[in-house]
């Protein structure tokens, strides 16, 4: 009987090892500025002077667009909203014009 429990113990540890194959340790950095939620109001196009893209695949957890306003505010907005898409299109066209 004690031999059986030893065997099952070894088996369990081997099983644990096998499961370990799936795992990974992560040491994610948590000292970077991030958008945590989205603005609930539309920003007028004229107050926006630029934007940055936040990707959920990187250190921050959500996808977001950060609009930089003329007053230095960094507003987080939802990239899935239509007005944001329109603003982004406008801004990128403006950028294209400027670079030409």
């Amino acid at each position: 009987m004690p031999g059986l429990s030893t065997k099952s113990l070894i088996l369990a540890s081997l099983l644990g090892l096998l499961l370990l194959l799936l795992c990974s340790t992560s040491q994610a950095q948590s000292n970077q500025d991030c958008c945590l939620s989205y603005s609930k109001v539309r920003l007028p196009r004229k107050v926006i002077k630029g934007f940055t893209e936040q990707l959920s695949g990187e250190v921050c957890d959500i996808d977001a667009i950060i609009f930089h306003t003329v007053r230095g505010l960094k507003a987080c907005v939802n990239p899935k909203e239509d007005w944001v898409k329109k603003h982004l299109l406008f801004l990128s066209q403006k950028l294209k014009r400027m670079s030409m």
Partner: peptide, 12 residues
Amino acid sequence: LISTVCSKSEVR
């Protein structure tokens, strides 16, 4: 109603 970027400068 505007959500701004959460600054972690103190943490840094």
